[in-house]
Each structure stands twice: as structure tokens, then as C-alpha cells.
């Protein structure tokens, strides 16, 4: 059974079609990359998968559960790391994570143990009782990751997880993704960083203006684009082939 099945998904905001008839599947135990330029519809697609937004049409199933029919069951199986650092910043990290744990109905002792272990691993245990108003973006990102893993979900979805992280934290995140998958979890993440996608993802999907442009393993995507690197394939598929000219135009404008 697929871990995630997306069928003919469409979503409109007023007259803007953010997602157009999108279909793809994600297998259990794989790292799946969602690629696309800004405004491609990646975040909208993710928000529909986790039940934050209703689609106009189409179906999403997580491990056989329909998001439309059983949203709570789906949310119990997903850990989500959002792109924007949506947190109650006037709480301490411990208070926030305890809230998340309690909303997942975890036993208090397990919540306490998990928080301690995860934050120690992420080098954040010293800040655990400080309000998050003073946290850096990287620290907030680590708290969000901890909250996504707290209930030991089957599927972890990360929206731009590497933005704002320093290189050491990013390395920990990359390592963690590998280990999660080795432990049987499924990870989906969206990113602009093609090197990371190339290194981590078994399969990927490139979308642009809400439409699927290419999908499959990296080799398959390169073959579909007729290019030999992911960067070139991405540029070609998204219609940006005059990169050098554009950079020159910007420099001209500065003069």
C-alpha cells in the first residue's frame, strides 16, 4: 500500500489556480522531494495533504485513510514541520511541546522523556525553559521538528526544512532524515536546495504553477528533461533558460 496517494488534486484561491489536477504517490520508507519555484503550489499541496486546507477536487489518502473522510486519523499519522515558524512564542519550548504531546494524547511521562531526548540531540536542552520569543529561526525550526516527531508518526512532511538552519543543524537534519527512513518512516520535503534533494531523495516531483512537470527517480527526471544535471533539468522544465541574461539585466539596472 502507498504511504501517500494524491489523485487529481485541484485547489483555487479566487481566480488563481494554485494546484491543477495533481496526482502522485509516495511509497513507505522513501524520501520524496517536492520541487518547484516560488509560488509553484508546493505549500498548498502540503497543506491539503495534512488537512489544513480543503481541496476543490481530488482525493488524498495517507496509509489508506482519506484526509477528507478521516482527517483526525490522518493527522495522528503525520508529523508536520511548517515553512513559517508557527509557534506560540510566549510559551517556553517545554510548555509548547507538552501542549503538542497532550493534543496527541501521549502519556505525561512519555512526553517528558521524548522532549528531553529530542532536545538534547538537537542541542537545545539548555533553552527548554526559556520563552521562544528570543529564539533564532534555527532554534524554532528545531522545536517544530521535535513537535513533529514527538508522537512517532509514520509520515513526516517538512516544508522547506533547511531554510534558516546553520550548516551544522542542516547536517543534523539531513542525517536525521536518513535515519528516520532507515527506521521505516516516510519523509516528504519541499525544498529549493537542489543539492540536498539530489543527495537525499529517492524520488521527486517537480511542479510549476500548480502542474506536474516531471516525476520519478532523479535519473527518470533527468531523462524526461533531456539534461544531465538536476539544476539544468529544473531550469529547463520551469522555463527559465536565460539565467545569465537575467543576472546581467539586474547588474545593468544597478548602474
Amino acid at each position: 500500500m502507498n504511504m501517500l496517494t494524491v489523485e487529481n488534486l485541484s485547489k483555487c484561491f479566487g481566480e488563481i489556480e494554485a494546484v491543477k489536477d495533481l496526482s502522485f504517490t509516495v511509497l513507505p520508507g522513501e524520501v520524496f522531494g517536492l520541487l518547484g519555484p516560488n509560488g509553484a503550489g508546493k505549500t498548498t499541496t502540503i497543506k491539503i495533504i495534512i488537512g489544513m486546507l480543503d481541496p476543490n477536487s481530488g482525493n488524498v489518502r495517507v496509509n489508506g485513510c482519506s484526509v477528507a473522510e478521516q482527517p483526525l486519523e490522518v493527522k495522528k499519522r503525520i508529523g508536520y514541520v511548517p515553512e513559517n515558524c508557527a509557534l506560540y512564542e510566549n510559551l517556553t519550548a517545554r510548555e509548547y511541546l507538552e501542549l503538542v504531546g497532550n493534543l496527541h494524547h501521549l502519556p505525561p511521562d512519555r512526553i517528558a522523556t521524548q522532549i528531553e531526548r529530542l532536545l538534547t540531540t538537537l542541542d537545545l536542552v539548555d533553552a527548554i525553559d526559556r520563552r521562544m520569543t528570543g529564539y533564532s529561526k534555527g532554534m524554532k525550526q528545531k522545536i517544530l521538528l521535535t513537535s513533529a516527531l514527538l508522537h512517532n508518526p509514520d509520515l513526516i512532511i517538512m516544508d522547506e526544512p533547511f531554510s534558516g538552519l546553520d550548516s551544522n543543524s542542516a547536517a543534523v537534519f539531513k542525517q536525521l532524515i536518513g535515519q528516520l527512513v532507515a527506521g521505516g518512516k516516510t519523509v516528504i520535503f519541499s525544498s529549493h536546495v537542489l543539492e540536498v534533494v539530489e543527495k537525499l531523495c529517492g524520488r521527486l516531483l517537480i511542479i510549476h504553477e500548480g502542474e506536474k512537470l516531471a516525476a520519478g527517480t532523479i535519473k527518470e527526471v533527468l531523462a524526461q528533461a533531456g539534461e544531465n544535471s538536476l539544476e539544468k533539468a529544473f531550469s529547463k522544465l520551469t522555463g527559465v533558460t536565460d539565467i545569465a541574461d537575467r543576472a546581467a539585466d539586474i547588474l545593468d539596472a544597478l548602474e
Binding site: 493527522k75 509557534l87 503538542v100
Partner: peptide, 12 residues
């Protein structure tokens, strides 16, 4: 803010 934080969690 509440929507962004709570809606991904299993709260009806």
C-alpha cells in the same frame, strides 16, 4: 496564528 499551529494537529 491559532489556525496555523493547531490545525495540523489531531484536534477536531
Amino acid at each position: 496564528d491559532d489556525h496555523d499551529i493547531i490545525s495540523p494537529l489531531p484536534v477536531n
